[in-house]
Design a protein around this nucleic acid. Structure first.
Lengths: 294, 294
DNA sequence: ATCTATCATAACCTCAGCGTATGTTACTGT
DNA sequence: ACAGTAACATACGCTGAGGTTATGATAGAT
């Protein structure tokens, strides 16, 4: 790892580069102009190259200076964004919920208004990740998968029922109905095989006691949200987790295909990162979500 | 702009987060463990939140800590890359050449081996930009356009002749030859009209004293490199700047269409950023390029 | 229960980096 | 051409931010 120059040098240069004069940089930094002059001179000595051309007044940046300015703009920008988030979070009551993207899109967001109404004064931050991606850190974690042994405080959300759903327009186009459908003539929307955590169509047919139609047409997605949008757009039939797509089932945008369903040990699980030591807000929101999802 | 925390706090946290213990971070930073402990405590007080959970030993990061770690990893990474570049550049003899992408692809890169042989011990860095993009900073600048008045030390490269070239396979496919061609039946490869610096087909026909074929087929590109690759692939005829495509003309991959040519005040110009004050390497390379390009 | 590793805190010390004052020079307006 | 202003560099003096050593508390392993 390259040893970084002094921070005061970098910030002095960054301010001078943005303002165009060392004097203005000094004002921004609440230091004197000679302090800025010296910081930048020390930085240049450290780096071994000139960042400003001083044959003119005010100074002009060299190409090396521009190179460093771009890096500082980007690097400081990202650090500043994180710092701002942490400071804001510390001032208010903020609860960060980390959950799979499909759950966020189809279950959590339709209920976000109600959640925020239930907890006035608390800022709810939501971090989502696609299936297969690493879980992002949060106060309250929702994951999809098998129950973990020894996890202790993990609550199971939603039912364990898995069933096919499709758009009524799609069914009508094929001359089918919810209680009169033929999988062999439908497109099966599915998550990519790499997502081994997912309940796929072969598993579903097997558990439903049906034979999977040979040569069934399949359409692969690497995002459950996109997959569900394809179903909504009439591109095929997809598997729904009990409870996840209920807002669409309630409005009729999607209908459940009549017939057997399958059950699975997999499901959505929620936990507070700090367990019983979690803050009151976190525990309350976890309880709220568990109640609405079961 | 958010005020950033102390750099020593950020670096101490970054080291501890990577190593997992404050003691190892102290070793990396060549300070004592209490110094690291205090830095991080001060940082946490500044941000108003805990970055480590200290109920365990060694410490474990909180979600806030992970948030900041990601930002520092990315931010410091970019700053470090720039710093490393500048330090390396200062130690060695590095000359940065900034030029349009077409010139780089078709003139400079075929000659790069010869250039490096001519200047052993000098590292040649090349920055390119597409036509219309802002010129990127470099020790030696090559641009395309009209001559600038008052630029002083700018040298003109290549000839000012503009002529059409095509792939012999394309010509053969149309039953044509270099000395027997009909523009009306060819596809004219051209830069997008937005690139007003470019010498376009209507201008060429006018200056060559020819009538532009009405309804001539045109294919637009926003990259001269892609345009030339299309000509090489037999997709049409393009305009060549005298000298730029000579490596293809030498090998026969492209042939010049016989007939009139046009001259233009536009051309490629090279200059040293620092003029006569430029370092010896920069001046010598500028002279080399000017000699080979004229 | 014992030992080791790790982090926190107290007491003390110092020099990195600051400010004020001044010199030099580019730049602008008359 | 000259005067005035703005901008950067350098010299001198000063101090408090942040370091070190020593010690206490506690988790974790055996």
């Amino acid at each position: 790892m390259e040893r970084l120059p002094s921070f005061s040098g970098l910030t002095a240069f960054y301010a001078a580069a943005r303002h165009g004069t060392l004097t203005a940089a000094a004002q921004e930094l609440n230091v004197s102009q000679p302090a800025v002059s010296r910081r930048i001179a020390a930085l240049e000595a450290d780096l071994g190259c000139a960042l400003f051309d001083r044959s003119r007044k005010p100074v002009r940046m060299t190409p090396q200076g521009k190179d460093l300015l771009q890096a500082l703009h980007s690097g400081f920008g990202q650090i500043e964004a994180s710092v701002a988030r942490l400071r804001q979070s510390a001032q208010g009551r903020v609860v960060t919920v980390s959950a799979p993207a499909g759950f966020v899109a189809f279950w959590l967001i339709p209920r976000l208004g109600a959640l925020e109404d239930a907890f006035p004064g608390v800022t709810i931050r939501i971090l989502s990740q696609e299936y297969g991606e690493a879980i992002r850190p949060g106060d309250l974690l929702i994951r999809f998968g098998l129950p973990e042994t020894g996890a202790g405080q993990e609550l199971r959300l939603l039912g364990d029922e898995v069933f096919p759903v499709a758009s009524p327009l799609y069914l009508a186009r094929l001359g089918m109905a919810a209680d009169q459908h033929d999988f062999a003539r439908m497109t099966l929307l599915t998550m990519e095989a790499a997502r081994s955590q997912w309940h796929d169509w072969p598993s579903w047919f097997q558990e439903a006691g049906l034979a999977m139609p040979p040569g069934a047409r399949a359409l692969d997605f690497n995002s459950y949200a996109m997959l569900v949008n394809a179903a909504l757009a009439g591109q095929g039939v997809c598997l729904a987790w009990g409870g996840v797509l209920d807002s669409f089932l309630d409005t009729g945008a999607l209908v459940r295909l009549q017939g057997p369903s399958a059950s699975s040990a997999r499901g959505y699980f929620a936990s507070a990162r700090d367990g019983l030591a979690a803050g009151r807000d976190v525990r309350d929101i976890l309880a709220w979500i568990a109640e609405k999802a079961t």
